[in-house]
Every structure is written in C-alpha cells, then in structure tokens.
Amino acid sequence: MRVDLLFLVALLVVLAGCSGGSSDPGAGGDKFKSGTKGLGLAFMPGVPPDRFLGEGRFGVAVQVRNLGTSDIEQGQGTVFISGFDPGIITGMETSADVGRLSGRSSFTPEGELNVVEFEGVVSLQEGVDAYRPVLLATACYSYQTWAVPVVCVDSDSSSTGQEVCSSKDVSLSGGQGAPVAVTKVQLSPSSEKLRFVIDVSNVGGGAVFSEQAMERCSPYSEGLSFRDIDLVRLESVEVAGRDITGSCKPLTDGHIKLINGKRSIFCELGVEDLGERPAFNSPMNVRLKYGYRDSVQKKVELVRAP
C-alpha cells in the first residue's frame, strides 16, 4: 500500500520538475528595444467606480507605466483629467506629474509603474438626478526613439568581387520601444555617395508633436495647432562612425514633418570619407525626440441617492 503511494508522490515530483521553469531573462538590452508604446495609461479598476451613488468625495486613480525603453524624468510627463463638469465634481486638481519612470530594461522588464490620483467632491445640482460624464485621462510626455539598424556600407558599389555584405534595404518590425519608430532603411549607393532613405512612422496610436509645444498638449490649453502636430526632431543620424545629420532632408527647423503619420527622409554619406575599403556592416544610429500624447476614457454614472 505504501509502495503505490510512494510511486504516486514520485510521479508528482517528476511532473513538477518537468513543468516549464522560468525562462532565462537573457542578456537584457536588445530584447527590450521593441514595442510601439511609450507611456501606457489605464484607470485603476473601481477608482472611480462605474456608478457613484449620492454625493461626497470622488477619487480617480490612473496607472501610468513606461512601456517603452526611454526613461522619463521628473517634469517630463503629465497626466490630465478632463471631461467632467467642474460645477458637479468640484475641487479636483486637473493635472499631476507622472514622476520619474524608467523604461523597460533588465532591471524593470515591464517598465516602471506609477499611480497618479485625483480627488474631488460630487455635488449634484438641483434637478439633476443623474450625471454621466466621460472622464478622459490624457498623458503628455517627452520621449525618444533610438533605432540601430545594421546597414551595409559599401564604398565601391560597382565592385564585382566577393563582399561581406551587399547594399540592401533593412526592414525593422515591431518598433524600437517607443511610439515613433524607424520602420525601414533603404540604401541607394552611387559612385560618390551612399544615400539612405529612412522611413519614420508614428506607430503608437497617439499624437506626436514638437516638444516645444508641450504646454499646448494639455486639454485645458488652447490646444495643439497644425504647426505643432506630427513634428519629430531628428537628433542625430550616425553611420560608420560619422555624423550625417546635416545631410538629412527634408527637415523643418530640424524636425521631420510626418504626413498621415509617416515620412521618409534622405541622408547621405560621402564615399570619399570611407576611403578604399571593402563593404562592411555598420550599425546606423538614428535618434529621434518628440512630444507624445495619448489618452484613455472611462464612462461614469453619478446618481442622486434616493
């Protein structure tokens, strides 16, 4: 009798040992440079409740998580609460700093999380038995994209000898851990210059705008104008150890103007700068900087107590 019990226990131990263990987190770094999100927003469940009965203190809590790879420093991100009648939900602060939020890394694989809270007082006016606002939580923040596609640098495109690599387009899928992504780099070599066509897209689902217009991102401000939106600052483009930012065009005051959420820019590297050397693979560092806005909604019902 005891033997069969022991057998059963042994079987269970073996099965437990065979179950999927935790995976090796890996070396870190590269595997976090993916994704198309910056800050992720969500109303905390129950705060506020879907239905609020009576009058009194009314709390709103918004979870903010840095789902991208760029760190957000204090003062670089703000969450705004809007969509409610200030005469009914009174005394509520409408903005809060998100604080310092580290991006995804081996130390914070899911990105750092913070909860911002707002509190007001519900006071239904005479004759109003129910009030159904749609609360809007809006995040406005500065962010960066750092793309590192590996391109083949070939100073002599006409060479027919065996080469380590050949000039071909590089597609980047899945993003770089930011809401604005470099999606493709096309190479167009000639006898004098290596031309790179870099495709930039807004892939985060929100609105991208010039960092300089951060104040106008707030829903309580005059709002972003056509001149503010879809602007991404080209910080730098480096390839083969050379900064070719100055050659990139078209730029508007150092910014890429997206059209329908995307744009291609053209940058060049002079072949003479490379000297006579065979083709080689080189990482191309593309850095972009911009402001970003995203929002989430929640329907709430405030009902007068019977």
């Binding site: 606002p133 749609v134 809007l136 809006t138 972003l224 056509f226 939106i229």
Partner: peptide, 12 residues
Amino acid sequence: DAFGVSRGPSSC
C-alpha cells in the same frame, strides 16, 4: 474649440 482648429483630445 469653437473654430475647430485645435487638435486636442475630447471626451465628447
């Protein structure tokens, strides 16, 4: 936004 020129989020 009476002129409709602002590009801002709106809850309604």
